[in-house]
Simulated assay, not measured.
Amino acid sequence: MSRQNLSEQDVLVLLDKLALVEHEVGKVIVGQKEVIQQLLISMLAGGHCLLEGVPGLAKTLMVNALAETLELGFKRVQFTPDLMPSDIIGTEILETDHESGERFFKFQQGPVFTNILLADEINRTPPKTQAALLEAMQEKSISYAGTSYALPKPFFVLATQNPVEQAGTYPLPEAQLDRFLMFIKVDYPSESEEIEILRRTTGNTQAKINAVLNAQQIISLQHVVRDIEISEPLLVYINQLVRNTRPGNSQSSAVNKYVRWGAGPRAGQAMVLCAKANALLSKRFAVTMNDIKQVAHGVLRHRLLLSFQAEAQNISSDDVVDSLLKDLAQPASPFGASSHSSPLSPAV
Rank of each mutant, 00 (worst) to 15 (best):
K283R: 15
G248Y: 04
Y258H: 05
Q269F: 08
V242I: 15
A267G: 12
L305V: 15
F285T: 04
S341R: 10
F285Q: 09
G268T: 09
A310W: 04
L281S: 11
N278C: 14
A270K: 11
K293P: 05
V295A: 11
L281K: 06
T288N: 08
Q309I: 12
V236G: 05
Q309S: 12
L305H: 08
A263L: 09
S250W: 06
P334R: 03
F308P: 02
L324P: 04
N244P: 02
V236H: 14
S282V: 00
R301H: 07
S231V: 13
A279R: 02
A270M: 10
V242Y: 09
E232R: 08
L300C: 05
N278Y: 13
R301E: 04
D227E: 14
S317Q: 06
N290V: 08
R303I: 06
Y237D: 02
D322I: 06
P331H: 02
M289D: 11
G264L: 06
D327H: 08
Q269K: 08
I238E: 01
G336R: 06
H302D: 01
P247M: 06
A296M: 11
R243T: 12
H340D: 11
H340I: 13
L325N: 08
A310C: 14
A267N: 05
E229Y: 15
L280K: 15
V287D: 03
A279Y: 10
R301N: 13
F285P: 01
A279D: 10
Q251N: 06
L280F: 13
S338T: 09
A254G: 07
P265Y: 13
M289R: 05
R260F: 02
L280M: 14
L234K: 00
S252W: 05
P334H: 00
V259Q: 09
K276I: 10
